[in-house]
Design a protein around this nucleic acid. Structure first.
Lengths: 174, 174
DNA sequence: CTTGACCTGTTATGATATTACATTCATAGA
DNA sequence: TCTATGAATGTAATATCATAACAGGTCAAG
């Protein structure tokens, strides 16, 4: 099974926060993120080309993690190149620019919903609907760094992810 | 490059803790872990077969993360089956029994140095020598769960990993 | 209008992981 | 002791994820 064949996100449910799980004006959330992305890349002198923009749009539309080949298959159907590097390069660019994140656990990518905010993200991955929410990991990261310091280890990058059930799927399961 | 072709661990260096980075009586640490593994599986009625034992030994000998194919190549040279499932199944068994951990960031596996202790591990991965140390992640995990709870997310499993430089490699780099 | 950096397309291949099924092994119960 | 049974292993085939290398195109600074 490819990531794109997994069950789609159920966006209905109780509003409780600004996370992906919560019901929200997704169209606005997407266009807003895209606009910020344009501004951020322009400010850095990075080029937001058609493929890159389209990949970001795809990730934003889904609001969950997509595998590189899922992204690629959409690009192909829109006339872009159909070889893996096309997708991987665009995704790599977005991650470098802080516009997307790689979810290690899933070998997949998700759009960043806090682009430009200099944040320490943790990811909450629902094993049922596969929605990925970006949570604040400041405290967890600080705890990890404290522990690392005791060992004399210098932390450069962290991967903090949780697998479990999102609020909507908990309700449905009950 | 396969994981096994990466630079081997330099085990020399100042003793500072009971972590993998520190100089320690590795032969003892290995045989001890193996003995505990035997006891734990026996207690649970799980079968510690030759392949499984050998895979655990291999992971313990290295004291770093090995890819499934690295493990497999060693098994082959010792007369075990030479197809991927041989390695993956043994590794899966060890992970289920809490005798090894999967390092997401590396798509690799490392022996658990606290088997049977019911711990919340974080992994400190040196990007230079590739040694993987298991640190306590209780505090980081608690922080992550607190944040998840705010979103109504139920955490089932966590992945907490740090990439950086171990004490030995920091010294050598400086 | 040239040059150089960057981006894109494509080929080829490498690395990681799983499904499916046949065979062998260990052990509990007859 | 002798099976019956479930577990473990061996093997083939294939799916999935990722990168190296190079050719050609685009664009903006000089």
């Amino acid at each position: 099974m490819t990531v794109s064949e997994q069950k789609a996100t159920d966006r209905a449910g109780p509003a409780a926060s600004d996370l992906a799980f919560a019901h929200h004006d997704h169209a606005h959330c997407s266009t807003d993120a895209l606009a910020r992305a344009e501004a951020l890349t322009a400010a850095k002198g990075a080029r937001m080309t058609p493929v890159r923009r389209r990949v970001l749009e795809i990730l934003l539309e889904e609001h969950r993690a997509l595998g590189a080949y899922d992204v690629l298959s959409r690009l192909v159907s829109e006339g872009f190149g159909n070889q893996p590097p096309v997708a991987y390069r665009a995704l790599e660019f977005l991650v470098e620019q802080g516009l997307a994140h790689r979810i290690q656990r899933l070998n997949a990518f998700a759009a960043c919903v806090h682009a430009g905010e200099d944040h320490a993200p943790a990811f909450l991955i629902c094993r049922d609907c596969h929605t990925v929410a970006e949570a604040e990991a400041g405290a967890a990261r600080a705890a990890l760094e404290t522990e690392a310091a005791r060992a004399g280890f210098l932390v450069e990058r962290t991967t903090i992810e949780a697998m479990g059930l999102c609020p909507n799927c908990r309700t449905h399961a009950a």
